[in-house]
């Protein structure tokens, strides 16, 4: 009884704020929570006549293809490891570049560098895939043509699985550094300049300022961004893997992620139940990872946790 009164008076007190909140709540309810009921598709044999809810139940049968193939462990491992590598390398680079840019004094050079680094973000993966092919093609690729002309041996990237680990990480960094830099740069610009002035008076050099002012000030941003990207750790960047690597059976052990595997197996079948099953598998694992990471951060410093 007391509790109910509490909610009502809370509503009464912050009426305006709740009204402002309403559109966002409605958006997430309609766009995210209502479609979630479609998860049932993962346990159904989808037929056009039955629709999502009328189709017959098949239990866990839709998950079978994924685990029976013997590739479930491999692709899950690849997905997680690649995403972890992207996460660590991209974020480190982004933070470094953001700090360097913020310390630069030449405004034009700063803007120019920033735009140049942002550019890859706008280039479609299809085009990047074509770049890569024309770079690494054994007979006519740019790299091999140069190697041949200076008398070195050509390199055969397309039958060398381990090379792709570096190529993929490199391409991902190339594509995302500019984008992340902007986020971190915004956080750095938000730091009160008076703190820096005070540090100047105390005689701190650039590195000391970065270590003791900039980094601690942007730590909350770093953690929020890290947690948010952890949510996608089970989702392989499909476009990137598919376009850059292609259907190359020789290197798939090193490059196959959940998403590419599912597309290859199910593209011709159009089996909605089975694709939904794969999606559910990814989502459940993602949820567990986020909860785990959040818990970990809570242990370290309660203030930084997401929830």
């Amino acid at each position: 009884m007391k509790n109910k009164n509490g909610i009502l008076s809370e509503l009464q007190k912050n009426k305006t704020k709740f009204i402002m909140l309403l559109p966002a709540v409605l958006y997430f309810f309609i766009m995210c929570y209502v479609p979630m009921s479609g998860i049932v598709l993962a346990f159904k044999n989808y037929t056009y006549s039955g629709g999502i809810f009328g189709s017959p139940w098949v239990g866990f049968k839709n998950f079978e293809f994924f685990f029976k193939s013997g590739k479930a462990f491999l692709v899950t491992k690849n997905t997680i490891l690649y995403n972890l590598a992207f996460l660590i390398i991209n974020n480190t680079l982004q933070i470094t570049v953001a700090i360097i840019l913020s310390e630069l004094t030449n405004k034009h050079f700063k803007k120019f560098t920033q735009s140049l680094m942002f550019l890859p973000y706008f280039i479609s993966w299809v085009v990047v895939g074509a770049f890569i092919y024309n770079l690494f093609n054994y007979e006519f690729g740019a790299i091999n043509t140069i190697l041949k002309s200076i008398g070195w041996e050509q390199i055969d990237v397309y039958s060398n699985p381990s090379a792709w680990k570096y190529i993929l990480v490199g391409v991902s960094a190339w594509k995302w550094v500019g984008y992340g830099t902007v986020l971190y740069l915004a956080a750095i610009l938000g730091i009160d300049p008076e703190i820096y002035e005070a540090a100047d008076i105390d005689g701190a050099n650039v590195f000391k300022k970065i270590r003791h002012i900039t980094l601690p000030s942007i730590t909350p941003t770093i953690i929020v961004l890290l947690l948010l990207s952890l949510g996608n750790i089970m989702k392989g960047d499909f476009q990137m893997f598919y376009q850059v690597v292609g259907n190359n059976g020789l290197v798939l052990d090193a490059t196959d992620v959940i998403d590419t595997y599912v597309v290859r197996s199910l593209m011709d079948l159009q089996e909605f139940g089975m694709t939904a099953a794969a999606g559910l598998y990814q989502s459940v694992l993602s949820l567990l990872i986020i909860l785990g990471a959040n818990k970990l951060i809570k242990v370290i410093d309660n203030d930084y946790a997401l929830f």
Binding site: K68, K71, N247, G249, L250, M274
Partner: peptide, 27 residues
């Protein structure tokens, strides 16, 4: 009508595009 063997068909479809292709092209 593949409705009874969908899971198997999905796996074999993947094999055709990857391992089978590699072998058929002599790699």
């Amino acid at each position: 009508d593949d409705s009874n063997v969908k899971n198997e068909v999905a796996i074999v479809t993947d094999l055709w595009k990857t391992d089978f292709k590699v072998v058929v092209m002599g790699f």
